[in-house]
Computed example of a mutant assay.
Amino acid sequence: MIKFTFYLFALILIFAASRVITVRNPIHAALFLVLAFFSSAAIWLLLHAEFLAIVLILVYVGAVMVLFLFVLMMLDINVAPLREGFVRYLPVAAFVGVLILVEMILVLVGWHQAPPPEVAAALPNTKALGLVLYTDYVYPFEIAAAILLVAMIAAIALTMRPHTRAKYQKPEEQVRVRREDRVRLVKMPSESKE
């Protein structure tokens, strides 16, 4: 049962990851990315790496996907045709939702049947991860952090486009104004009432 569950989650993960890069609709890609994250978390739960699974769900599904959707909204992609019919997207959303539900049920069934690995029996899961991450893999960890920082700066730079209709005040020009630049005195003959 454990091998079947693992291979099922692996197949779902490969399918979802391939759909993330092949689907044309960015919203569908985000939904398939959520499915890929859930499949990875389910595989980690089967391996008794609960901390990694929970962090994947909380950080990536909870925060990174919100960031992705925020960037999709800020890029001003023409999604008017996508909003026309909610019913059109219901099959994709239902498919992803049912797959996530089936994965969660299979993890709960398979998690109690799989014995924990003997290697991690001496240390708690989080402590063993921290020891390995900050000793053996400290440089790849720092490189990954730098890549994520660059990606965050790129996402901000993509949303900071100059607006053509926006009008801005320029205080340095307002301070340098002279009366002669703004006011012109015109001499006009006065009219006489006769």
Rank of each mutant, 00 (worst) to 15 (best):
G62R: 04
L129A: 13
Q169F: 15
L8I: 05
V107N: 01
L149T: 15
K3V: 00
L106S: 04
A29S: 15
E180N: 15
V175K: 12
A157D: 10
L90Y: 08
L106T: 00
E191R: 08
I100M: 15
I54T: 13
V96E: 07
L58E: 04
M188K: 10
A166H: 11
L131T: 10
I77C: 07
H163Y: 10
I2C: 00
L67M: 14
R179Y: 10
L101R: 04
L72V: 15
W44N: 04
A42D: 08
P189T: 09
A94W: 09
P91S: 11
R165S: 11
P117D: 05
L67C: 05
A42G: 15
I143D: 13
F4A: 07
R178D: 03
F9S: 01
W44Q: 14
A36F: 00
A16M: 08
R182P: 01
E191M: 12
A154R: 10
Y60T: 13
A49D: 03
M104A: 13
L108H: 05
L69Q: 07
I156D: 04
V132W: 12
I100V: 09
A42V: 01
A36K: 00
F141M: 10
L46I: 05
P91V: 00
A120W: 00
Y168I: 00
R19F: 11
I156R: 15
R165W: 04
A63K: 11
R182S: 04
I27Q: 06
R184K: 15
L35C: 04
R178L: 07
I57M: 08
V92P: 00
V98L: 15
V55Q: 08
L69D: 07
F9D: 00
P81Q: 09
P91Q: 08
P81L: 13
V61N: 07
A166G: 05
H112E: 05
A94M: 14
Y60F: 12
G62Q: 11
I2L: 10
A63Q: 14
E194N: 03
G110F: 03
N125A: 09
I77Q: 10
I54R: 12
P162G: 03
E142V: 15
A17R: 06
A94C: 05
V132G: 10
P115Y: 07
V177G: 04
I77A: 08
V55M: 08
V96P: 06
V34T: 14
V79W: 00
I14K: 05
P116V: 14
L47F: 09
R184G: 04
L8C: 02
Q113L: 11
M188H: 08
V98Q: 07
